[in-house]
Amino acid sequence: MKTFFASLGKRKSYVVAELFFVYLALGIGLIMLGSVLPQLRASYALDYQTGGALLSVQSVGYLTVGLFTGVCSVKLGLKRAYLVLYALMPLGFIMLLINGAPLWLMAAMLLTGFSKGAVTDYNNRVMSEYAGGRAAPLNLLHAFFAIGACLSPLLVLLCLRCGDNGWRLSMGIAVALLLAALIFGLFMHMDSEKPTEAYQTPAGGSFGFFRERLFWQTAAIGFFYQAVEASMMGWLTSFYVDSGTLQADAAQVVTSLLWVALLIGRFACSVIAAHHKPWQMILVMCIGIGVFLALMVGTTVLPLLLIGTIGLGLCMSGMYGTSVSNAGDIFIRYPSAMGLFVTLTGIGAAVAPTVVGLVSDRIGIRWGFASLLIAAVFLIIAAVINARYFKHLNSK
């Protein structure tokens, strides 16, 4: 990591600081949406199905914007496209505070999804280029999201003690942080730091990655992982409370504990990545996700629940950054590959929360959460296929 930071000039260092700041603010804001979902549903009289639809609409925006991020960065310039699309996040939060009509709420969540997808694309693309495809800087970037995610439930818990409108106060604080990151970004020089090679057509054409097996197996891993992650981010607090496992205050604390584990895991992955290949880390983390998710949804005993939650957080911690580095060379050679990767993996994030909501409405939220085990099984299968691919490649 010291080598990475030492290689950055003044302008690149400012850009990296902005990427970290934005991910910190997004960690607070996006996890807050899940933390306040029980209060938001109660305030606006929403059922599980509508709540799941809101989470899925956000994911629809997340996956759709990936089709346009590449074009926007070329037409508007990377910095301008980045800031304009990021500004949709605080706008969506403000809309959530203004009105509780379902269509209005869905429009607000769609905007937050657009912003989340664009930031994911641009942040990972720029960081991957600066890091030369190494996993450690990418995992450190995602660690800042985890820091914000750790703080978010605790912030919600404090604000809820201020009364019935405490959830609005917490979201107001999130808006202030999101706007602060936007203002900070106005002074960076992202465009001038963008390598000109990125806009040249690589050998094999701009869409040559379609023929790369590694791209598709990495996308499969991302698809099933995003299905689990999106549902965890949106439904976790509701699962703890509505299943009767935890009281509301305890649920916020345990949700924060998940992200503490994620934070620790992301720093650990930054170190582990220096000694192990991405495919090896992915295989171990995917198996762990399946095991600890099964433990979490299958128990009502608090110690086992805590073990499942912490273990799940540790195993999820480095998945996205390590998945990007798994096909890092492809993302560097084909700039449009990252946008499609975000779109394809976002489909899993769009479908899963609605499935959880539908099942929860019919047979209970514990069974709704249990449906995620299907995604976990396919995630493990994709990781095994990826590992076999690299073993075969290295044996040549």
Rank of each mutant, 00 (worst) to 15 (best):
Leu26Met: 13
Leu262Asn: 09
Val126Asp: 00
Val301Thr: 12
Val74Leu: 12
Phe145Gly: 00
Asp121Met: 05
Met188Thr: 14
Ala268Phe: 09
Val15Met: 04
Asp329Pro: 00
Phe145Gln: 04
Met190Thr: 14
Phe209Arg: 10
Tyr334Cys: 07
Ile183Gly: 06
Phe224Trp: 14
Leu67Ile: 12
Thr345Leu: 09
Asp329Leu: 07
Met106Glu: 10
Phe369Ala: 06
Ser7Tyr: 02
Tyr389Pro: 01
His392Asp: 10
Thr69Trp: 03
Ala101Gln: 14
Thr64Leu: 15
Tyr240Ile: 04
Ala45Ile: 07
Thr3Arg: 11
Ala149Ser: 14
Pro202Val: 07
Ile385Val: 15
Ala273Ser: 15
Thr245Trp: 03
Trp167Pro: 08
Leu54Glu: 06
Asp121Pro: 00
Ile381Met: 12
Leu26Thr: 02
Thr255Ser: 15
Leu141Ser: 03
Leu141Pro: 02
Tyr86Met: 14
Leu78Tyr: 12
Pro90Lys: 11
Leu26Phe: 14
Gly321Asn: 09
Lys391Pro: 00
Met89Asn: 07
Ile374Pro: 01
Leu110Cys: 06
Gln247Met: 10
Gly311Asn: 09
Ala375Trp: 13
Gly166Cys: 11
Ala136Phe: 01
Ile374Asp: 02
Arg362Asn: 10
Arg134Asp: 12
Cys286Asn: 12
Ile310Lys: 02
Leu140Phe: 09
Met285Arg: 02
Phe224Met: 10
Asn386Leu: 09
Gln39Asn: 13
Cys162Ala: 14
Arg168Leu: 10
Ala383Gly: 08
Phe5Tyr: 14
Leu312Met: 13
Val15Asp: 00
Ile365Arg: 07
Met233Thr: 13
Tyr225Cys: 08
Val228Ala: 09
Pro278Lys: 05
Ala337Thr: 08
Leu306Arg: 06
Leu141Tyr: 05
Gln217His: 13
Tyr62Phe: 15
Ala349Val: 03
Thr69Glu: 09
Thr112Val: 11
Tyr225Met: 07
Val297Trp: 03
Ser152Asp: 08
Asn139Trp: 06
Gly313Tyr: 07
Lys396Val: 13
Gly113Gln: 08
Val377Arg: 03
Leu258Trp: 06
Leu257Ser: 07
Gly34Ile: 04
Gln252Gly: 01
Thr3Lys: 13
Met32Arg: 00
Tyr86Asp: 09
Tyr62Gly: 08
Ser170Ala: 15
Ile264Tyr: 00
Ala180Pro: 08
Ile310Thr: 13
Ser7Asn: 09
Gly77Gln: 11
Val284Phe: 12
Asn99Cys: 11
Ala227Asp: 09
Gly364Gln: 02
Gly117Met: 05
Lys116Asn: 11
Gly66Tyr: 04
Phe292Ile: 08
Gly339Trp: 07
Thr112Arg: 03
Arg213Asn: 06
Leu63Arg: 01
Gly244Val: 04
Ile183Leu: 15
Phe21Lys: 03
Leu169Asn: 03
Thr354Met: 10
Asp121Trp: 01
Val71Ala: 12
Val228Trp: 04
Ile307Asn: 02
Ile282Leu: 15
Gln200Asp: 06
Lys79Trp: 05
Gly185Thr: 10
Pro90Tyr: 04
Phe341Gln: 10
Ala135Asp: 06
Ile173Leu: 15
Val126Phe: 06
Gly51Cys: 06
Met106Ser: 14
Leu76Trp: 15
Leu55His: 00
Lys396Trp: 05
Phe5Ala: 03
Leu83Gly: 11
